[in-house]
Write a protein that binds this DNA or RNA. Structure first.
Length: 567
RNA sequence: GUCUCAGUAGCUCAGCUGGAUAGAGCAUCGCCCUUCUAAGGCGAGUGUCAGGGGUUCGAAUCCCUUCUGGGACACCA
């Protein structure tokens, strides 16, 4: 990639001059009026060499200007006080890199040093409760990170990890019994109603809470009647969940859940017992996961409740055993609400203590709490959060009302655009931040939105459709600043992607796609291609736009967004 | 109480692995459709980057501290 090549040149020069350094870090210019790329290492060299940065910078720049193939890389390299090396790339360098990107299915992205097997745990819907906005977040962020990992060349295994065996099931079973609904008549609407009601009731009534816990425990112990009810609830919910994931184009390799971890619990118990890690405390079995170095108090992990039932932490540990045995992953990533960070800290530590999987295998990728426009968190347990389906319907309605012709679009295209609206609105947020959910913002179709990206793609597509490139090799020319800006932006891809991958931040890609689209819009509106008589220029530009669109399409797919046929 | 995350333009946010003049979208106000799709483009204005200290040649970014708000803190997930 660009920065590597530039770094190599500068490092070579620095070493030739006898400066002791092993890296000359080059970054994208933050003063595009002055240069394309900059290097700020002069300050550090000055410190270690006990010389003035000006002296060092000027000597470096002088030497760079003397290299044989200078014009293969640069148009200009200059030193600017107090210590910046400013580089302007030559057209031939830019175009050489673009050609390389065009010839490479991954746009010159280098292969990973080690191909890792990564298990991703996202989605995590509770059977028994309707999917709400928070579930879209985990599904989309998780799916996007999965696709980013795959694009980078890693191997992924995505597990939906259904919440299908915890207390919430006990609550729903209790509710179904209480309302005396026969299993054959049970519907998703019943579940939507019963879960929030029972959840609220448990908070008020201790006796009901105990009863629900009791049911949960008996279900886990194999009570046939409860087992039958569980199966039915599971089936109804799964159908609903599958439908929504299908709509969102989110898919999983494994459709497992907490219940599938149960067979592994005896083994987990044995491992912990052998290491003498299980302690009794207040009737419950716990694992002490605190460390002396802890700044805060880390409470023990509750392995088994005093009534004998198992909890989230135990099934998570059992799931880790299962995953290590079946897939030997290098990493296990969990995409959940960041409020669960303490829980995962406990589980990761317990796993490490017991030698199931070392702490370094795990990453908890937390995302911000879903808040309302008033800044307060949605109380999902009380059913206050809007259902996901409502969100889809709302976005669709706004979309259709936006343009008369939209009513004539195929359902398929409408769905793709609705997906683009929601996902781009979601993924352009930094996933770690709290998430203000505002339905009008999530139905927005103008500005920095999914539709803007799709619109740009389709316009470009229309322009390039009629020109055949016949293996055209771009010339050494760059024709104007609109043109140059777009070319330079495309070169940033490997760095942007690398950051998105390393930090697991899809919003880096979202921002980047948007930047490309802004420049592409400016480019084609100021440079008419159709009717151009200069054949080479025309083909150069079509080449550029074709590459732009290929990249947009590929990156949209990393954001789980598909392109419609028309808009 | 302890820990933790945040506070950036009127609103919603990006930037935070330290760099030169802090960026987008929305909203507001102009201009551009007989011209490859106006869901677009061009132009205009707005900031004590919560306050205070520190480290550094250089801080929105790192450290300390105060204020404000969110969240977590063993038998929920």
């Amino acid at each position: 990639m660009v920065v590597n090549e530039l770094e190599e040149i500068l490092l070579g020069v620095a070493k030739k001059l006898g400066y002791e350094t092993d890296s000359m870090r080059v970054i994208l210019s933050n003063r595009p009026d002055l240069c394309d790329y900059q290097c700020d290492e002069v300050f550090k060299l000055a410190k270690s060499a006990h010389k003035s940065p000006i002296e060092i910078g000027e000597s470096l720049v002088e030497e760079v200007n003397k290299i044989d193939n200078f014009s293969d890389y640069f148009e200009k390299v200059e030193f600017v006080k107090p210590g910046f090396i400013n580089m302007v790339l030559s057209p031939s360098f830019i175009n050489k890199l673009l050609t390389g990107m065009n010839d490479n299915p991954k746009f010159n992205l280098s292969a990973p040093e080690k191909i890792e097997t990564v298990v991703l745990d996202y989605g995590g819907p509770n059977v028994a409760k309707p999917l709400h906005v928070g579930h879209m977040r985990t599904a989309i962020v998780g799916e996007s990170i999965k696709r980013i990992l795959n694009f980078a060349g890693h191997k992924t295994i995505a597990d939906v990890h259904l919440g299908d065996y915890g207390l919430q099931i006990g609550q729903v079973i209790y509710g179904v019994q209480k309302e005396n609904i026969s299993l054959d008549d049970l519907t998703i609407e019943d579940l939507d109603r019963i879960y929030p009601a029972m959840s609220a009731l448990c908070k008020e009534d201790e006796a009901v809470k105990e009863k629900c816990a009791e049911i949960t425990k008996e279900l886990q112990d194999g009570n046939l009647e409860y087992r039958k009810m569980w199966k039915k609830i599971f089936e109804i919910s799964s159908e609903d969940i599958l439908g929504i994931y299908k709509y969102l184009d989110v898919s999983f390799d494994l459709w497992l859940g907490e219940s599938d971890a149960y067979p592994y619990i005896p083994r987990v118990e044995k491992i912990f017992k052998e290491k003498d890690l299980l302690k009794e405390s207040e009737g419950a079995i716990i694992v002490d996961v605190s460390k002396e170095t802890d700044k805060k108090e880390v409470p023990p992990l509750v392995f088994q409740k005093s009534n004998g039932a198992y909890l989230y932490a135990t099934t998570d540990l059992a799931t880790i055993v299962q995953r290590m045995e079946d897939y030997h992953p290098d990493k296990i990533l969990y995409v959940t609400d960041s409020r669960q960070s303490l829980h995962f800290e406990q589980v990761f530590r317990a796993s490490d203590l017991a030698g199931i999987a070392p702490y370094s295998v795990f990453e908890h990728l937390g995302y911000g709490t879903v808040n309302g426009s008033d800044g307060k968190p949605y109380k999902t347990r009380n059913g206050d959060s809007p259902k996901l389906q409502y969100l889809f319907d709302q976005a669709k309605e706004v979309l259709i009302s936006k343009k008369e012709t939209n009513a004539d679009m195929s359902n398929e295209d409408v769905d793709k655009i609705v997906n683009a609206i929601l996902k781009f609105a979601d993924l352009q947020n930094n996933r770690e931040r709290d998430y203000i959910f505002d339905i009008s913002k999530f139905s927005e179709v103008v500005g920095k939105t999914g539709p803007y990206i799709l619109y740009t793609y389709l316009r470009i597509d229309k322009i390039i459709q009629n020109v055949s490139l016949d293996n055209h090799k771009i010339t050494n020319n760059i024709y104007n600043n609109y043109d140059r800006d777009l070319r330079l932006k495309l070169l940033e891809f490997p760095v942007v992607f690398k950051n998105a991958l390393e930090y697991r931040m899809p919003n880096y890609l979202a921002d980047y796609i948007y930047d490309i689209c802004v420049l592409a819009n400016a480019f084609y509106q100021n440079n008419h291609i159709n009717g151009l008589e200069e054949e080479e220029k025309k083909k150069d530009w079509v080449f550029l736009l074709a590459l732009t669109n290929r990249m947009i399409k590929e990156m949209l797919s990393l954001l789980v967004i598909k392109i419609p046929t028309v808009m």
